[in-house]
Design a protein around this nucleic acid. Sequence first.
DNA 1: CAGTATCCCCGGAGATACTG
DNA 2: CAGTATCTCCGGGGATACTG
Lengths: 125, 125
Amino acid sequence: MIDKKDEKFKFKLNGKGFHCETDVAISLIGGKWKTVLLWYLKGEKKRFGELRKHCPHITERMLSITLKQLENDGLISRKVYTKKPPMKVEYSLTDFGKSLIPVLDTIAAWGKDVAETKGEKFMDE
Amino acid sequence: MIDKKDEKFKFKLNGKGFHCETDVAISLIGGKWKTVLLWYLKGEKKRFGELRKHCPHITERMLSITLKQLENDGLISRKVYTKKPPMKVEYSLTDFGKSLIPVLDTIAAWGKDVAETKGEKFMDE
DNA sequence: CAGTATCCCCGGAGATACTG
DNA sequence: CAGTATCTCCGGGGATACTG
């Protein structure tokens, strides 16, 4: 039984309903680490260990999970170069992922502005 | 005891550390309902019940919680007009919240594009 | 009308240890 | 090097009922 209320959604994607256009985007880039990883992949492809270094606080588990989600959503691609013990894997933005760059830039610019304007000030209040 | 690793954060805001510029932004607009509500408040101020109508799937609880978060973060302001039983409260973007509009527009445009390009197609596969 | 108050569940996220 | 495997915890989010 499918709920009739599904019709009230504005968009559908992969069987899931969304409330408005921003909702679709947030489902793809929301979450604690997604934009951060995408941000570091923006310029160039990177290896697992490089990404880990850029995000000192991420656990290997979350890094692995988040990369897989981004891959499943088609935003990044994963390329294995050597399968034997000293493995080498590179992650890079797909074309779809690259379409996100202007969005990431806009978000980052605003975030930076907020951090510079409001950052640190409230710390000791 | 404050953890020394705090120094590894790139930004600080209200006592919390952030990993990169996108992180700051996501902390303010991430979550299931924030961008949706901001989106509907973008054009004009709205009342509690109006917002509820625009988001048929939100519960009153989540609407209340999310609005409070947005208010605490300074993105929206809450104005009470009548305190007696038939209450009237209006929510609107603050100047800070208005600074988000270009970001929301960018996110929405991308989300809409994604929905139109990829939406529905995969539904019956 | 505009919320609270509860209760509850699931999954995001962390910590740690282990592996091909 | 690039991950899995567990275990755990916390809180976001949902459902329902109640209130100033």
